[in-house]
Design a protein around this nucleic acid. Structure first.
Lengths: 284, 284
DNA sequence: CTAGCTTTGATATTATTTTTTCATAGTCAA
DNA sequence: TTGACTATGAAAAAATAATATCAAAGCTAG
């Protein structure tokens, strides 16, 4: 029987340490198991005895027997490399797997809904250091705006995440110039006040507006210069933002790569300023 | 350099025994080399010392070093076709499309690194209304924690997102009970203070800890009851969290579906209470 | 909170694997 | 044929890896 399958079978009766091992093995399956027992122990923060007991529990004679099995598996599956990744998950109707395949569809659809010209235009806008960037999102989608602003801040200066409280918005609006960019994320259950913010910011300062929304198009999109629309229907009770997330990652990566030298220097400078008790410098 | 190639290069200056070894290695390449040195000696009718000398001649530190190389080679060659995109090769062609295929790859890998039993366990933990849930993430990854907490709050009560400032953590720690759940997101460039928080929360209240991290395993994972590990290497300048994101969406959806009636009522009640002009509810 | 149970890793022990040493066998030129 | 050399494997030694033991820590039910 496949090692992987044995892990599945036993996974209900594993101890904390054993689960940790299970996680590590599956994450880099099957190669993680080819390390020596000590190295694996160190990597997983467990101990050789625990590993030894674990593989015994899985039904092997000992660690070496376990490794022999893994090697055999590799040998077998060599003919169809894809097996390793997809084929041998035994459980039918596995929730996670099913969900993932839907998400993957969404993500592909998201990407193909955006032309590369538009993609480049928005990257240029947000990457342009001469423009300040203001970001905000809706109740849930603000998490995405936050993700973008945290990253963007590593690449460039002049990035401002607007707080949730509308009372404070005017303070930011007064600083917006017509070259600046207002980046809004607004998915359905649209928030009226975001559209209002867009309208007024546009009217007052002529700021450039980029909106990330779904196909029904947030009312804020009416005032936008650029609209990224991604599908969100996952066929479940919630909408899925994974398409938006990947799109944003692609955008951020593109921006960072475009001026990588500057970004690298900026990150280094930033790191040297980080307060020490909060950060580990050894990155691995 | 490939072992195979080294064999080629040296083939002119090999002794009789070495040629025998060379043949055997190539005949069942690269698996023959994964045997122990004794077994290989027996199979080839040579002796361990000869093999040891041979691999040294090939330029390795010793037999184990030689094996490590072979394993790496297998690892490389066994990558799925999609993985091949990911190498260090810069993205070419349509940027977005290529990025998406990398992300999809990461996402599938993330899912297959998690057993369905573990997935269910964590869903149960976070969905259990008898437990309070505390969430926090690192500098960047907190966006994911935020996303989870916003969603979770729609499903159930007793969800608390810890603020970034460690000064305020004790206030939350004092409220943690041993049944409660502390959910942490910590990806590389781990934050020391998160591990510290985990340690102390565990020591003080025996809270259940769930950690979402990468394969290098955040130090916080040492204190965890459950660890979700997702791959993050996208082959670009940034790590990609899309695997984590999809996993979280799957989890949230699962939780919401499990008690959908309650959730629906909760959302309705919530909506009727929202301040009408769209005020966004603050998170902390 | 405590008693009794399970889990865990430090240490010691044992087993295994690899390399070194060294004597012998083989090769080839004179 | 001899002597100088290389190649080879048996055996010993060293290095490395895996497991057993055991005390301590953790957990759970009462």
């Amino acid at each position: 029987m496949q090692v992987r399958q044995r892990l599945e079978n036993l996974s209900s009766e594993l101890t904390a340490t054993e689960r940790k091992l299970c996680t590590a093995l599956l994450l880099d399956y099957p190669y993680a198991g080819l390390d020596t027992i000590q190295d694996l122990a160190k990597k997983t923060g467990t101990s050789p005895p625990s590993i030894s007991r674990f593989v015994t529990k899985l039904g092997f004679q000992g660690y070496q027997d376990f490794q022999r099995h893994l090697i055999d598996e590799i040998r077998q599956s060599n003919r169809s490399p894809l097996d390793l990744h997809v084929g041998d998950r035994p459980i039918q109707g596995d929730y996670l797997e099913d969900f993932v395949s839907r998400a993957v569809n969404l993500i592909s659809a998201s990407a193909s809904a955006i032309t590369s010209a538009q993609f480049e235009r928005v990257c240029d806008l947000l990457g342009d250091e001469k423009r300040n960037v203001y970001l905000i999102g809706g109740r849930i989608s603000d998490a995405i705006a936050l993700y973008v602003s945290r990253h963007l801040r590593q690449v460039r200066s002049g990035v401002f995440h607007l707080p949730a409280d509308p009372e404070i918005w005017p303070e930011y609006m007064l600083r917006m110039r017509s070259k600046d960019v207002l980046f809004m994320v607004d998915y359905r259950r649209y928030q009226r006040n975001l559209a209002e913010l867009a309208r007024r910011a546009k009217a007052q300062s002529g700021v450039q507006i980029v909106v990330l929304t779904d196909k029904w198009m947030s009312p804020a999109a009416n005032h936008a210069n650029e609209v990224f629309a991604t599908p969100i229907e996952s066929g479940t009770v919630w909408d899925s933002y994974s398409g938006a997330m990947v799109l944003m990652e692609a955008m951020l990566t593109r921006i960072a790569e475009t001026n990588w030298d500057k970004t690298r220097k900026r990150i280094e400078a930033w790191d040297s300023l980080r307060f020490d008790h909060g950060a580990r410098d050894d990155d691995q």
